[in-house]
Amino acid sequence: MNEAILTARGVRKTFMSGDRRLEVLAGVDLDVAAGESVSIRGESGSGKSTLLQLLAGLDAPDAGTLAWAGESDTGTARRGRFLGIVFQSFYLIPELNARENVLMARRILGPIDAAARKRADDLLAKVGLAERAKHLSSQLSGGERQRVAVARALMNSPRLILADEPTGNLDERTGDAVIELLLGLCAETQTALVLVTHNAAHAQKTHRQLVLRSGILVHG
């Protein structure tokens, strides 16, 4: 069996809504192996994004444990190297062009060199944006922006990519293309992928399909 890249055990998260306790995650268990792609579907408000944020180490669970490649360190310093994140809203920095946005993921880890620049160019070429490397995000279409975000997520050769409804703001055809690209690149680089999506067709393309229902993950 491949190395476990992501391990979550009994992860719980509760929010207060006025005086009411709202248990969003009621003990999630999840294992993702290297090179494996897993989709998570669920109704709106079921806690998919909350689960993804916990898996990314952006928030702390109320209970349960989380490990990246067997290590419980999910802090800021490790996050930049271990995982890449793709958001529904792209979150490109508007003052930077496409190439600079991709390189930003590396800059945050340390000084960039010629190899890093070449990798950014290669990734932009792989997502089909070599010609648009110097365009600002405002000059790109939604699909192009999301492809830049995919290239940025892959910039540091992460072990795991977490994608939170990456096609949510795209039309069907563009969304299909982005998912194909994401799955293809992850497969090519043996990067594990956790894909949160509403789209059943997109979910079917991953190795394993899960559904978040009543705060726990079940097979879909």
Binding site: A56, L58, T76, A77, R79, G80, R81, I85, F87, S89, Y91, I93, M104, A105, I108, L109
Partner: peptide, 13 residues
Amino acid sequence: TREIGLLGALGAR
């Protein structure tokens, strides 16, 4: 605000 959040997600302290 969201860009600041993104920077944090990318590993910025």
